[in-house]
């Protein structure tokens, strides 16, 4: 598949949040303000891109050649957990203010199904190295897009009269559903 097609597919047509349902926890939890949404999105994109590289290397240089396919899940999740740990330490050293801003979001990224999902789907589709990197980067951008759009809508919603039981997660999910419908319109744009 063409690289541009992979990128656009990951961002719009098969958006990780709105199509694959990955990354819902942070999507609901961190989408209340646009600033935190952007920070989370960028952190996730960063981790996803690196994860794409490392998971491809592990899968194709170690797991497949030595017939260790059954260790895929364990090795992927350990890689992700370590990467997040490293990224956290790295950001803390390089830019303390950024670290303050991201705060608790970073450890949360480990259980972000989007990252694990990325590694698994890329491996499932047997993408090449460059394709996997583009896919990882694109999915991160797609996640960021969804979460920032959601934050924008929710900032407006805060000023509206939402029925009590639907406040918070309820209305967020309904909005997500409408967004998913809208993104459905992107299907077929690559044909």
């Amino acid at each position: 598949m063409e690289l541009a097609a992979i990128f656009i597919s990951a961002v719009l047509v098969q958006n990780f949040v709105l199509y694959y349902f990955l990354g819902i926890c942070p999507f609901l939890g961190v989408s209340k303000k646009i600033d935190s949404a952007v920070s989370m999105g960028l952190a996730v994109t960063f981790v996803m891109s690196i994860t794409a590289v490392v998971s491809w290397l592990i899968n194709n240089l170690i797991l497949i050649p030595y017939d260790l396919g059954y260790l895929q899940i364990v090795s992927f999740i350990l890689v992700i957990a370590s990467l997040v740990q490293l990224v956290e330490m790295f950001i803390r050293k390089i830019s303390p203010p950024l670290y303050q801003a991201l705060g608790i979001y970073l450890p949360l990224i480990t259980t972000n199904c989007a990252i694990m999902g990325l590694a698994l789907i890329a491996a499932l589709n047997e993408l090449g190295f460059v394709e996997t990197v583009i896919f990882g980067f694109g999915s991160g951008i797609g996640f960021t897009l969804a979460i920032v759009l959601m934050a924008g809508i929710r900032e407006q919603l805060d000023l509206s009269d939402v029925p009590e039981p639907l406040k918070g997660a309820g209305i967020a999910l309904i909005v997500a559903g409408i967004m998913a419908l809208a993104f459905n319109g992107f299907i077929g744009m690559l044909t």
């Binding site: 349902f21 639907l166 997660a169 967020a172 309904i174 998913a180």
Partner: peptide, 21 residues
């Protein structure tokens, strides 16, 4: 479709909170 999943869950959450209150 994904949209239906989101919307249904959102409504169910609302119902759960309603019953709770």
């Amino acid at each position: 479709l994904p949209a239906g999943a989101f919307i249904t869950l959102g409504i169910l959450l609302g119902i759960a909170l309603l019953i709770e209150s």
